[in-house]
Amino acid sequence: MHNGKILLVGDNPFHGVSHLSQGRARERSHEITNPEYCAGLVSLAMENGADGFMFSISETTLSILKLMSRSGKTPRLYAIAPAASDYVRLASNLGTPGLAAYLAKQVIISGNIKAMAYGVNGVMAQNPVSLMKAYIFHELYRIESAIITGVKPYCFMLHEIVTDMSLALDLKWLFKSYIDFMLTLKIKPGFETRNFPYLIDKFTKWGINLDKVALVTPFNEIGFQMSPSKTKCERTLESIPKTEVIAMSILASGHIMLSEAIDYIKSIPQISGVVVGVSKEKHAHDFKILKDALATL
């Protein structure tokens, strides 16, 4: 790491996600869904300066982690849960109660005692906090089961769908209990959001200590997915200098050239790091250029 700025490999391409074009994602899906190929890309990015791996917890990414772990290359982990697209599809097919039943079944199959204990307590006492803890234990157990080195994630993040819905519905209890719980586990609590100023505004009103959390949110030259606006996001960033804010979508899903993205990142030195997805070897080699750019901030 240089100057404390962190450079992370993102996993969106491994899930067939492209915010530029789903057609493009389908075209590259054959090789990019092969865990061995993906693990190779992450390893190559690490060799070129990446400090860690930010990933949604799914069967695909757990397979990648398993392969990397076997070759002794476990990166610093930023885990995101839930893997929203998987759960949205399940909810479409099974309904929300069906999804809950599916999750409960997965916890039981895993045999994870902590998750089961919190799950039973959550159901019996109708306690949402216990259910949240059961879910987090379940996801952490999945990660631990994939990694033979026993390394736990540096940061565990709530997916943007959960974060942003919970913000809008004023679920202050969820944020507070989640942060406290993660801190007791000695894992940094994090939030992925596409509504960065809205989150900061709510957290400030609720008295949540922003220095203890990590945030990942879009920052790019063209303001893509920067709600409500690029200017508002940049001003908000300036107002929280002690918070770990990682910029995502710096290439706006490939709409922006790497050199332009770097110029933009240099204009917002308050960011703590960036996360960039890889789908080709060339992208992994580009991490060296990104690393050098971050070193100058």
Partner: peptide
């Protein structure tokens, strides 16, 4: 110009 005041989904 795809930005909105609150982005969800």
């Amino acid at each position: 110009n795809d930005n909105v005041p609150f982005l969800l989904g």
